[in-house]
Design a protein around this nucleic acid. Structure first.
Lengths: 381, 381
DNA sequence: GGATTATGTACAGATTATGGACTAAAGAAC
DNA sequence: GTTCTTTAGTCCATAATCTGTACATAATCC
């Protein structure tokens, strides 16, 4: 519970958000339909919509409703013409940026290959800053106004500080001012990829997104909201115990999922996922066996995850997406056999549709969400 | 986001809740302090407090603030004189009821020993209904008004229906009208025990409550709110996989935590936890070994739980509470060794202070919380 | 073309919070 | 002990916002 009282201005701010949310969530609506949906009167909705129109976040899109009697209403829908946000990502082997408008249409996307393993944060952030500036300029040349930015990193984040990104070799990096004087949020890659899946992929409201990168992370979405845990460290699926006293993991533990299904374990001597897929398609036994082993381990870890997190479905993303045909059966079987009678049926297992872009899109989407959640504040209404 | 707009009446309802919450959360306050804390004006707060006084949920408790200058304020604090709620519990070997007032002081507590294993739901619910009626009458004789009730059950609950309580042998039981025409909530025993720990035990806002009963459940509290998952089935710690192809569990899986640390595994041939504690105190090797084995398994399962849920601390409750001296070391060692460098330090491991009453208290507390969260609705203001 | 039906706006009225003035009650200063 | 200062709480006129009725508008139906 926010402990601040509601005053006249916050009542209106809230109602602006409620109306905008209704427009966003269930498509274009007439003012009359918005009134019914929000419980406000037509008069109030008209006044709120007028403000939203002026701010450029919604637009009128001609008359609607053929077939029924009475005066047709004017549909009010989200406008992608003006407001946009910037998503950024640092990963092991690339930097990425994208610009997304208020309708969550992707307007720009840029990727720079890079080798960021054990790199100098200042140097990489310099490159990222240049990429951000360039992307913002391109967006503004197209008439968009970039209102905020978010950055996805492959590591743990607390209070806006990157605590630890083992594969980058970064620790306690304070990121700021990446995008000029835009407000910048920063979050874990798996979390933002989960949000990417929510807003740009399947658009289901409840799922566990399993992010296979060098490490394995996961982001849980319940009712359209990301679950972060107490310190924002929830969802470390890669270090769920699969075999209590199995081989050592780089985390210091033993028998973690990552040991069996991390990229290193999957690839073995191969140098890319593409190469692995080729071998799998050719039916090479070593490759098939690595996948079977990973699938079995994933099934075990996901069983524990389902019992603890109760996800609506399980979405395999990152490198697990191209490997889905070979992982599907062992994971599903493992889940089915282990979950037993505890619940009706195991959560459906599906593959992510947005692949490698999930995190950077989720980052941009996060900022869009904040604007939609409080347009009065974000837009100065 | 609730999709309903804010109207004048909901603005006031919200402000009543905000003021009441401030009084509840940070102790008695003067009107002036409440105004500062909530951001409302003194005038508004006075008016809101007047309504709350009339409803009997707060009372004025004389002047406060010696030492400082100026007119002393009148402290407004929660009143336990009028509003109360009923907590109920069905467990394997007892029925319980309690009445808690608005300040969360326990006013009445009743327990009936019973053997509810594989019982007839109608019969047991009849006994519970009698216990509820009797308890409500006693409370009202004491001048309290019981405003609502909640029931804790050892099983899974969906949409207010008890889906499955394996140890009771109940399936798909619709509970209603247990307490006359009082509104009745129903929830899982581990969830409500976690809330009991939150409100009547340590009062920390972030922890994982581990409930050792016949089975093993857990309830995660983050920021003072219970995490329930998608279908309300989260926290099934007892079926986290400890050994991938270990012994069969009654759930249909293999090597679940319950197999190693459930009450049956702990007790072996003994018939009560008390008996086990006696053996442990006497240093009997078989008992010590059972505890060590359970502690090791708990350490493994909790490692996975910490990675997935990111709890602020871990509270051992239920039968694990009396066994804490023998579980502490193996669990802590297991967590410490396995969590490795992934986080600063493992979450603190502590014992619950409220023992067997956690669930029934949590049930009553849940209803109190609902009244505090929306006093206007609950009290007809 | 007139009846019907629904949309969207106008304007007066209702509800609630605000803000400054005022009263009340205590300690501090002299 | 009288007066000043400070803080608490209330009063009342004002302001912000939403509501509700009335009404102009624009389509379909017959």
């Amino acid at each position: 519970m926010s402990s601040r009282g509601v005053r006249h201005d916050s009542m209106r701010a809230r109602n602006l958000a409620v109306v905008l949310d209704a427009i966003h969530r269930t498509g274009p609506h007439t003012r009359a339909a918005l009134a019914e949906r929000t419980g406000l009167t037509k008069t109030t909705v008209s006044s709120l919509v007028a403000d939203l129109l002026e701010a450029g976040v919604v637009s009128e899109r001609g008359a609607v409703r053929g077939g029924e009697r009475g005066r047709p209403g004017v549909a009010v829908s989200l406008s992608g013409q003006r407001v946009a946000t910037l998503g950024l990502e640092v990963n092991i082997d690339y930097l990425a940026a994208c610009v997304v408008d208020l309708t969550r249409a992707v307007r720009l996307r840029r990727t720079r290959p890079a080798d960021n393993r054990n790199s100098d944060p200042a140097e990489i952030l310099g490159l990222l800053r240049a990429l951000a500036r360039e992307t913002i300029e391109a967006a503004e040349a197209g008439g968009l106004r970039v209102m905020g930015a978010a950055l996805a990193v492959p590591g743990t984040v607390e209070d806006g500080v990157l605590r630890s990104a083992p594969h980058l070799g970064w620790r306690d990096v304070r990121v700021a001012d990446l995008a000029g004087d835009l407000p910048l949020a920063i979050d874990n890659e798996a979390n933002l990829a989960a949000l990417g899946e929510l807003w740009f992929g399947s658009r289901e409201a409840d799922f566990l997104y399993v992010s296979g990168e060098i490490g394995i992370g996961a982001g849980l979405v319940v009712g359209g909201a990301l679950f972060r845990g107490t310190y924002g460290l929830a969802g470390e699926l890669g270090h769920v115990v699969v075999v209590p006293d199995g081989p050592a993991c780089r985390c210091g533990g033993r028998g973690c999922l990552e040991v069996y299904a991390g990229q290193d374990a999957l690839l073995g001597p191969l140098e890319s996922v593409t190469a692995l897929v080729e071998r799998l398609e050719a039916g090479e036994p070593r490759a098939l066996e690595a996948c079977a082993r990973a699938g079995h381990a994933l099934g075990v870890a996901l069983t524990s995850a389902v019992h603890l997190l109760d996800p609506g479905r399980i979405v395999l993303g990152g490198v697990f997406a191209p490997l889905f045909p070979w992982l599907d059966a062992p994971v599903k079987d493992g889940l089915g056999a282990r979950l037993g009678q505890m619940r009706g049926a195991p959560p459906p297992l599906v593959v992510s549709g947005i692949g490698a872009d999930a995190a950077v899109l989720g980052a941009a989407g996060l900022v869009i969400q904040r604007i939609l959640a409080d347009p009065a504040q974000a837009l100065g209404l």
